[in-house]
Design a protein around this nucleic acid. Structure first.
Lengths: 114, 114
DNA sequence: TCCTCACACCTTGACATTCTAGGTGAGCAG
DNA sequence: CTGCTCACCTAGAATGTCAAGGTGTGAGGA
């Protein structure tokens, strides 16, 4: 994942991609390409997930049983894999979201101490 | 770095350690051990930096010219390296803090879209 | 005296995640 | 039939972190 930083791309942050994918799929099934553009758009063009990160991540989530996919046809009439959350994935999403909140708050505290 | 999660330790998040160290040193010179406890305390015991992460990180920051150290003696009368920010490090801190804010906001947007 | 503990520093090896940089094939527009 | 976008994929390298080890020294107690 990269973050747009004054028109330069800077790599940043490990461990949040799973969370972002799970959250995106919570809004309904989507194929890889859709997930990419969805994350980019819902972050106001700040977050740019690379394909080389996305697909390994999807396979990782599949393996862990957090998502599954069905074959389907995209809006552009292409073959595509529609991923969706499993119940296990929903739980994981909740857990990861909580963890993220906790972490973000903790870092914020360190950045501006009382 | 790990985050305390209901009395279990879960590793989390790559790329923020430099920021936390720089921010800690902004409050004045400190040696490694102090930096560890300072981060733990200012995060309300949530963030626990391991030695195996801290020292490589310090050497990395040294190499990049963001910090320097002087030999000194600790409060406990031990030999210690007192690290402090360089002007370059101060700039870097500002840049990384901005980047973090940007990222945290972006992720927050993805987590709860309008 | 000797022992143990905490302090302060360090390194090695493994691991996971991500990026770069490739590649495939199919549909669509010119 | 060419070129473009879509949609999928992988190999290789880089990176940062952790777990687990290690050294040496000072302080305090037995």
């Amino acid at each position: 994942m990269s973050i747009r930083d004054d028109d330069a791309r800077v790599e940043l942050l490990q461990g949040t991609l799973d969370l972002l994918i799970l959250r995106t799929l919570q809004q309904g099934p989507a194929h890889g390409h859709e997930i990419m553009t969805s994350i980019r758009q819902s972050s106001d063009e700040v977050l740019q997930v690379e394909q080389g990160s996305l697909y390994p991540a999807l396979h990782r989530l599949l393996k862990k049983g957090w998502i599954v996919f069905d074959h389907g046809t995209s809006e552009n009439n292409r073959r595509a894999k529609y991923y969706r959350l499993t119940p296990k994935g929903r739980k994981q999403l909740a857990a990861e979201a909580t963890k993220w909140e906790k972490l973000a708050r903790a870092i914020a505290r360190v950045l501006r101490p009382a």
